[in-house]
Design a protein around this nucleic acid. Structure first.
Lengths: 151, 151
DNA sequence: CCGTATCCATTCCGATACTG
DNA sequence: CAGTATCGGAATGGATACGG
């Protein structure tokens, strides 16, 4: 009995988790955002088994999150680079990172966090805003059926 | 051979994914944010197998994301409510939802999205900001070893 | 260096039956 | 209604061997 797919769910959270809600995928995206492109780089960075990595990279390419291109260094192999769709996942990683930094680390503990590359200061904590820019509190947010907002 | 734990990782993304990086956990949190509290409510909403749900609820309680309290309706059972730590995951869900809404749905397709409960308008898209409030672009962000920022 | 293929243990997950 | 227990198939994930 296979896992129940949420591909057809009308909930944008569920449909997203169906694609990236596994254990490795977002870590690969994280590394890709950090500039890694090569199979071996990912493998070394993550300590992931090769067959797992092969599988995940393939899925990410199928989903249009990564693109494959021939290596620029003259070797015969592939490089994996994020598409715009993939780069957009950075916001998810920022949210995860801020939550983890706040709740999973002791105050004295070293922790890798996201900083802006100009001043090397941590990013400001994400805030929820209504359409008009007003800052809203978490309890003012509700999940509702609607159409996708025009961007 | 067991799964390699990322519990001790110094990366806040990795350590977070070690806890909530599975297929069901964030969906349970989503439902909890929507006000569900009872075992049966989660089970019905998610279509999850009971043994899976039991296991996930237990882990969430152990992690301090959910708290158990006796039912307020006089029945003999438990209610599962989010702690502050759990409610803070809302930001992660917002990020996931916005990404999915943008990249995984056709423009005409119905999609559950997050709205503010006053005007029932979709939330504004999350933006990255530097410590000083300046809006920054994704490529200005870098993962760096540091201590946790004081909140 | 880049993968593919295979083996094997563990885990996931759904279905079902059962208890209170 | 709220779980617990168990079964079995599928997927996960690590180790290793192999070929380009």
């Amino acid at each position: 009995m296979k896992r129940k797919s949420l591909e057809g769910s009308t909930c944008s959270v569920a449909r997203t988790l169906d694609i990236i809600g596994d254990w490795w995928t977002l870590l690969i995206v994280r590394d890709a955002l950090n500039g890694l492109t090569r199979f071996g780089e990912f493998q070394k960075s993550l300590g992931i088994a090769k067959n797992m990595l092969t599988q995940r990279l393939k899925q990410l390419v199928e989903q249009g999150i990564l693109a494959v291109r021939p290596a620029t260094d003259g070797s015969a192999w592939n490089e994996y680079v994020l598409t715009e769709k993939g780069r957009a996942l950075q916001m998810v990683l920022v949210a995860l990172s801020q939550w983890g930094g706040e709740y999973l680390f002791d105050s004295k503990e070293k922790c890798n966090i996201l900083v802006d590359n100009k001043h090397h200061q941590p990013l400001r904590k994400l805030t929820l805003q209504a359409q008009d820019g007003r800052t809203i509190t978490p309890d003012e947010v509700v999940l509702e059926r609607s159409t996708v907002p025009a961007e």
